[in-house]
Structure formats: C-alpha cells, structure tokens
Design a protein around this nucleic acid. Sequence first.
DNA 1: GCTCTATGTAAGCACGTGCTTACACTTGGA
DNA 2: TCCAAGTGTAAGCACGTGCTTACATAGAGC
Lengths: 198, 198
Amino acid sequence: MVEIQQKRARDAQATRQALLDAAAALFAERGFERATVRDIAARAGVNQALLFRYFGSKKALFGEVLERNGREQLSATAPESLLEAALRGMLLADDGRLGDRSLEAFLRSTGGSDEVAATGRLLGDEYARVLATLSDRQDSQLRADLVLSWLLGIGLMRVVVGKEPLASADPDEICELVLGAARTLLEGLATPVPASGA
Amino acid sequence: MVEIQQKRARDAQATRQALLDAAAALFAERGFERATVRDIAARAGVNQALLFRYFGSKKALFGEVLERNGREQLSATAPESLLEAALRGMLLADDGRLGDRSLEAFLRSTGGSDEVAATGRLLGDEYARVLATLSDRQDSQLRADLVLSWLLGIGLMRVVVGKEPLASADPDEICELVLGAARTLLEGLATPVPASGA
DNA sequence: GCTCTATGTAAGCACGTGCTTACACTTGGA
DNA sequence: TCCAAGTGTAAGCACGTGCTTACATAGAGC
C-alpha cells in the first residue's frame, strides 16, 4: 500500500507541490485573504477540491507555506546577511523571482485576527529575534521591529500600492538607501541617543 | 431649500456625519475591504441602507473620508512637521485618538486594484510630494516614498500584526528612533528638532 | 387634519467565498 | 478480469458581502 510512486500520470505529490508553489506565490502577492482557493488551484492547474483533500483548509495550507519556505530560508541565512536577504527577497518578488516569499506572505496577511496571524507571527518573531542580535542596544528588539516594519511597508508600497517612483526603482538603489539607514538604526551609530551598551 | 437645520429628531446631516466618522475609524483600523458596511453603519448607530442613500457606494464613502480628513490635515500642516505629524497620527491611532487617520486608511486599503487604490493613491502622492520637498537629493522622490513606506509598515505592525515590543512601545521612543533615521535618509533638510511629545 | 417629502427600516437579492459531497476515472495487485 | 484504493471532477451548500427595494414614520407646510 505505502509503496514508492515514481512517476504516475496522476501524481499526488506533484499536485501537492503545485498547490504549495501556487499558494506561496499568491499569498505573497495578495496576502492570505485576497488569495482565494479557486485562484490558487487555478494557478496550480488542479481542481480546487484537491486543495482541501491535501491540506484540509486554506489556513493549514498557509501554515505549510510559511513553514516550508520561511523556516528553511531563515535558518540557512547568516544573521548579518538576513536583513539584506529579506529586503532583496521583498524587492524581487514581483519580477517572477521566487525567492523567500514567506516573509512577504506573512507580512501581507496581517488582516486576520485569528490563528492565521498567529501562525505568521511566529515567523515574524523569528525574523525579529535574529535581526535583534545585530544590535547591542537595550532596545534592540524595538529597533529590529522597526526595521522589519520598513521591509513590510516597502513591499506593500511597491507591489500592492504600486507607488511611483518606488515601484519601478532599481532594487540595488533601494537596498543602498534602506540598508544604510537600517544598519545605522540597528547599530545606533548615528542616532543621538547615548550609547547604552556599545 | 438650503436652510439652517438646527436640531431635528431625524437629522440627515448628523447621520451623514456619524457615518463619515465611523467609516474613518473603521477604514483606518481595518482597511477598506475588512471594514464592512454593516459594521460601519452599526458603529454609526444607523441603518446600513442609509450609507447607500447618502454616499451611493462604499467606495464613494471611502473617497469622501479621504477627501474630508486627509486633504485638510495635509494642507494645514507645514512640510517640516508633516513627517512627525503623520508618524504620530499613525502611532496614536489605536489609542482612541482620532487624528489624521486618512493616511492610515489609505495605506491600510491597498488591496483593491481598482479605483479604491487609485483614490487613495492621490492622497499618498501628495504626502510623498510634500515629503520630497524636504530633500534636495535628486532621488528625493524615492527617499520620500521609502519614508512613507516606513510609516505604513509601522502602522501595520503595531495595530494589525500587533507585533511586540513594537505594538506596546512608547510613541515618543518610536518617534525618536524613526525620525532620526528618516531625517538622515532625507538629509539636507532644515528641520527644527521637535520636542518629543510631552 | 391632511399631504408630501425627507428620513429611517426590514427584508432580500446577486455574487463571491471557503468548504463538502457525490461521483468518475486511473492504476496496481489478485 | 475484477476489485479496491488513489486521484481528479462537477455541483452545490452555507455564509458573508455590497447593494436594492418596498415600506413605515416623522415633520413641515398648507
């Protein structure tokens, strides 16, 4: 019964994977609520009922997307590189690139006050915790949250709002501006606040 | 016809105003899509059909909220103070304060790709334009967009995501951190360092 | 008092949503 | 060949949404 299935015309594994990929993209693009199960299934090229067969619910699918994409990217990136990696992932999201869209999906799916937000919050907390290790200030957590907020805002402004000139701006240029200010904020070098730990 | 109406038991003006106030609050709190006409009418204490009688549609109501609250606040604030004013409006939004929630409502209502977004975009453009005058860089528009994005992200993180410690952080402390970094980013501006809050 | 208009109300329509169910097809093993 | 399980499909349900409609009532002018 539980045997190895190599390549079948009807491939449950492939269907699952297609649903996961489509969901990751759509959740990142539109957020949890605006990404409908019908659209996800359509992009995956499968019947929408299969989504519920394989994942149980839209929320469970969302959780699995965050779990699969997010955690692995998070753990595979050095803390010093995480900020730039997250920012670039956010900036490249609309270019067809399929990088780390889990943070984007989480940030974009903030509306629901239920377990959806809770699921994503765990991921956001991890990002913030890692970012906070870059700062030795006593308010490093707050600074990390502010940096994360910036990434969220930039992503939303670019993709969802489509605000110009930001939406069409060169990612490298944005990186230069944002990373400079964000690192300054995290390291607290240029802020007039008297150093507490540094 | 157009006479002074002082106080009537059935007061269309008061009903309109109540709807506008309730809508401004709910749009700011939840964004356009998640603020339902039934909730708006309920908060206003009126029948939801009146919303359509007085404003025609939910979109039209949204537009009027932005027009009424946003434009006047925008034009009544000096450019040098706009950044802090917008940030503080964003930070105080969940404290029962009812200040400038129009920017918040716009930023929170980014989902719709139709004329709702277009309506709000005009307001966002005005904010960005004014902010851009604070910078003499050639990419001042982009920098202004980035600053606006930050405000959007902070507002969302605090109120919608509820990310801690950001959500419970002291507005003054946030202002100090953000305004410092934002002004550094805009650079080249002559901004009077404002006494923070109290 | 009567009427006519402005104002308020209840009920419901049309549609999109997440999700379910009953059914058809494919496939591998007996 | 036949069966049973795995896989895919169409139809529809329950509910929430924006919005409409038919009606009730109040209040001013006569």
